[in-house]
C-alpha cells in the first residue's frame, strides 16, 4: 500500500494559489523528499498531509485514511515535525520528550529502542533547557519528540534549514536508519544537494511539481550536454559566456561555470571568442549534471510553458 496518494490537490489562500493540482505517490518504507525554494508550497502540502489544513479540491489519502474525515485515526499514526522546531524552550530536554510521550499516550521507556540512536547524543544534557541547546541538538531532540509514539509515517518540514553542513549530514544518516526500521519518511528541504540522499524526490516550484522520480532518473533526463568552465577571473568569464551567441545557459556552480550550448559545442570557436575578450586560461570539461542543474532547467521550461 502507498503511504500517501495525492491526486490533483489544490489549495488556495484568498487570491494566492499555494498548490496547483498536485499529484504524487509516496510508497511505504520510502525516504521521499520534496525539494524546492521557500514559498514553493512545501509547508502547505505538509500541513494538508498532517490534517492541519483542508484542500480546496482533489483527493488525498494518508496511510489509507482521509485527512479530512478520518483525522483522529490518522493523527495517532503520524509523526510531524513542523518547520520551526517545535520545542518548549523553557522545559528541559527530558521534560520535552516526556511531555510529547504523555500526550501521545505512551512513555519514553516504551519506545526507547526506536529513538535510542538519536536520543543518546543528547541524553547527557537531559536536564538542560531546550532553549540552551545548539541547533544540531535541538534538531535531534525535535526528531526524538516526533518519533516517541512510534509513528508509521514521519513527515519533517525543512528539518535541515539553517543547520550547518556537518549536522545536516548526520541528520540524513539518522533518517536512513529510521527508514531501515520500517518507517516511511517524507522530508522537505531547500537544499538541492540533499536530493541525492532520498529514494525518490519531487521537485516543487510555485505550487507545482516539476518532476517526481528517483534522483538518478531526474539527472538522466537532463536534456542537453553540460560543460564545466573555469578561469581565474570567473566573473568576467560568466559575463562573456552569457554574451556568446551559441550559449544557452551559464550559471555559477562552485569553482566552475555550468554552461549548455545551442547545438553541438564548437570548442575552438568558443576558445577563440573568449580569447578576443581577453580570457585565455579557460578550462572546458564535459560534466554530469546535478539535481540543481535539472531543477533550473525544469524551472525555466516550466516558466516558458506558463507564459505561452
Amino acid at each position: 500500500m502507498d503511504a500517501i496518494v495525492a491526486e490533483k490537490i489544490t489549495k488556495q489562500f484568498k487570491e494566492t494559489v499555494a498548490l496547483k493540482e498536485v499529484s504524487f505517490q509516496v510508497r511505504a518504507h520510502e525516504l521521499f523528499g520534496f525539494i524546492g525554494p521557500d514559498g514553493a508550497g512545501k509547508t502547505t502540502l505538509f500541513r494538508l498531509i498532517a490534517s492541519l489544513m483542508l484542500p480546496n479540491s482533489g483527493s488525498l489519502k494518508v496511510l489509507g485514511l482521509d485527512p479530512v474525515t478520518e483525522f483522529k485515526a490518522l493523527r495517532k499514526k503520524l509523526g510531524y515535525m513542523p518547520g520551526r522546531f517545535s520545542l518548549y524552550q523553557d522545559l528541559t530536554v527530558e521534560e520535552n520528550l516526556d511531555f510529547y510521550a504523555t500526550i501521545f499516550g505512551t512513555t519514553i521507556e516504551e519506545n526507547y529502542d526506536l529513538i535510542k540512536d538519536i536520543y543518546s547524543h543528547i541524553e547527557p544534557f537531559k536536564t538542560r533547557p531546550a532553549g540552551k541547546l545548539s541547533g544540531g541538538m535541538k534538531q535531534k531532540l525535535a526528531l526524538s519528540c516526533a518519533l516517541i509514539h512510534k509513528p508509521e509515517l514521519l513527515i519533517l518540514d525543512e528539518p535541515t534549514t539553517g543547520v550547518d553542513a556537518v549536522s545536516r549530514k548526520e541528520f540524513w544518516q539518522m533518517l536512513k536508519n529510521l527508514q531501515k526500521q520500517g518507517i516511511t519518511v517524507v522530508v522537505s528541504t531547500p537544499y538541492m544537494d540533499e536530493a541525492a540522499l532520498c529514494d525518490r524526490v519531487a521537485l516543487i516550484q510555485k505550487g507545482s511539481l516539476l518532476s517526481v522520480d528517483t534522483p538518478e532518473n531526474i539527472i538522466n533526463s537532463f536534456k542537453t550536454e553540460l560543460y564545466g568552465l573555469r578561469s581565474v577571473d570567473m566573473y568576467n568569464l560568466l559575463i562573456q559566456l552569457k554574451a556568446y551567441a551559441f550559449c544557452e545557459n551559464a550559471h555559477l556552480f562552485g569553482q566552475y561555470i555550468h554552461a549548455s550550448f545551442k547545438g553541438e559545442l564548437n570548442r575552438n570557436d568558443l576558445l577563440n571568442y573568449l580569447k578576443t575578450k581577453g580570457i585565455e586560461d579557460v578550462e572546458i570539461t564535459g560534466i554530469k549534471p546535478g539535481i540543481e542543474d535539472c531543477f533550473m532547467q525544469l524551472m525555466v521550461s516550466n516558466e516558458t510553458l506558463e507564459t505561452v
Partner: peptide, 8 residues
Amino acid sequence: TGGVDPIT
C-alpha cells in the same frame, strides 16, 4: 540566500 530558488 537562505531558501531562495537556484536561479535567483
